[in-house]
Structure formats: structure tokens, C-alpha cells
């Protein structure tokens, strides 16, 4: 997994509540068995009209936000479907940090696994950054994960909270499957204990077709 340390560049604002993962990346992008090019489908129905032409007014279709690396969103961002295509599409577009008052649970976990930093900020701070992001003169900001700050274009900083474990994982880019596999002995021991007390959870294989 890619590490996340610092990030600076244009921030785009999407001031809407309850933006679901169907809006982040719609169903027609879910049938591929490759992640390549998902950035093209990011916010598809906002970005393209019914004839698939770019909607000129949409923020990600306008300079400098067409190169945004930070997104400022509304409450409950990422609700709905568990599709990990949502963080994949954000990352493929180039967005590695989303700032919002709150996030949905599954999307939140999926972002951690893909090196995307989600920052939950109190509504007032989020509103300040939304206003900054809306103006081409002030939309550039810098995120420093180690220092836990977002620096505005005027040099002022906004501090944010993050759980120590998530910060550590993002800073180090840890692959937790490798880490968990190294703990096989603990998992073996759990299974031995569970098998003794709840043996019915083991060996119940699905019958073969026609059986």
C-alpha cells in the first residue's frame, strides 16, 4: 500500500450531504476485472451529460480542480454500497484525501486500505475549507498527516484528529494481510478453542450440485 505523509495541491468542494458510493462510481464500472481507468468514471453522472460529454460547470471538469488531489465533501460521505471501486476511482483520479464532517463506515474502512486519508472535521472548519476550495485563488491547501494539520492558502492551519492506529498505518503504508498472516499461531489457537466449544462451525461443506 502507498504511504501517506504529506499532500498539497488544489482542493475541490462538493457541498452535498449523503453522497453515496453509487454517485462516486456508478454500476457500469463494476463489471470490469481491472481497476485501471476507474478515475474516468469518478462522479460520472455529475461529470458527464446523457451523451457522455463533460458537464462544463462541474467542479472536476474545470481548472484548477481538474487536477484536484483533495476533496471537501458534505456529511455522511460514501454511504451505501460497499464497493471498493469508490476509493479506487478517487485514487485513480488523483484524490488522496477527503475532508468532510462525517463519513459512512464501510467507505471509511475501504479508504484506509487504499492509502486514502479521510479527515472528519467539525462543521465550521469544514465550511471554512469548502469556501477556500470554491475559489481558484484560495483552493490550494497542504495536508500534513504527521503534524495533523491542513494548511490553508493564507498560511493558517486547521488541526484534525485521527486515531493513532490509522495514522500509523497510513504513514507506513502497512499491508495488514501480511501482518495478520504472521500471527497464524494466534488464529490456530482461536480455532482450536472454538472447535472444542462450537464444533458445528467446522466442516459443514456445501453439498455438491445434484447431491
Amino acid at each position: 500500500m502507498r504511504t501517506f505523509t504529506t499532500l498539497s495541491g488544489p482542493a475541490a468542494s462538493l457541498p452535498m450531504i449523503n453522497v453515496d458510493t453509487d454517485q462516486i462510481i456508478p454500476k457500469q464500472y463494476l463489471t470490469a476485472i481491472s481497476r485501471a481507468g476507474l478515475g474516468k468514471g469518478l462522479f460520472h453522472d455529475f461529470r458527464y451529460d446523457m451523451e457522455d460529454r463533460p458537464v462544463p460547470d462541474f467542479v472536476l471538469n474545470r481548472a484548477p480542480w481538474n487536477e484536484a488531489c483533495i476533496l471537501i465533501a458534505g456529511q455522511n460521505f460514501g454511504c451505501g454500497s460497499s464497493r471498493e471501486h469508490a476509493p479506487w476511482a478517487l485514487e485513480d483520479f488523483g484524490i488522496r484525501c477527503v475532508i468532510a464532517p462525517s463519513f459512512a463506515d464501510i467507505f471509511f474502512n475501504n479508504c484506509v486500505k487504499n492509502g486514502i486519508l479521510l479527515i472528519a472535521l467539525p462543521e465550521d472548519d469544514a465550511n471554512t475549507l469548502t469556501a477556500d476550495a470554491g475559489n481558484a485563488q484560495t483552493c490550494r491547501m497542504a495536508v500534513d498527516l504527521d503534524a495533523q494539520t491542513v494548511t490553508r492558502s493564507n498560511g493558517e492551519t486547521v488541526a484534525f484528529e485521527i486515531e493513532p492506529f490509522r495514522k500509523h498505518r497510513l504513514l507506513k503504508g502497512l499491508d495488514d494481510i501480511g501482518i495478520t498472516l504472521a500471527r497464524a499461531a494466534e488464529i490456530d489457537a482461536f480455532e482450536a478453542r472454538q472447535k472444542a466449544t462450537q464444533p458445528w462451525l467446522y466442516g459443514a461443506r456445501l453439498p455438491d450440485p445434484g447431491a
Partner: peptide
């Protein structure tokens, strides 16, 4: 769960 977690469960 997401796809990364699917892999985590399959493997561990």
C-alpha cells in the same frame, strides 16, 4: 466489507 477485506478474510 470491501474487496481488500474480502482478501483478508480469504487469506486469514
Amino acid at each position: 466489507i470491501g474487496s481488500s477485506e474480502v482478501e483478508h478474510v480469504l487469506a486469514t
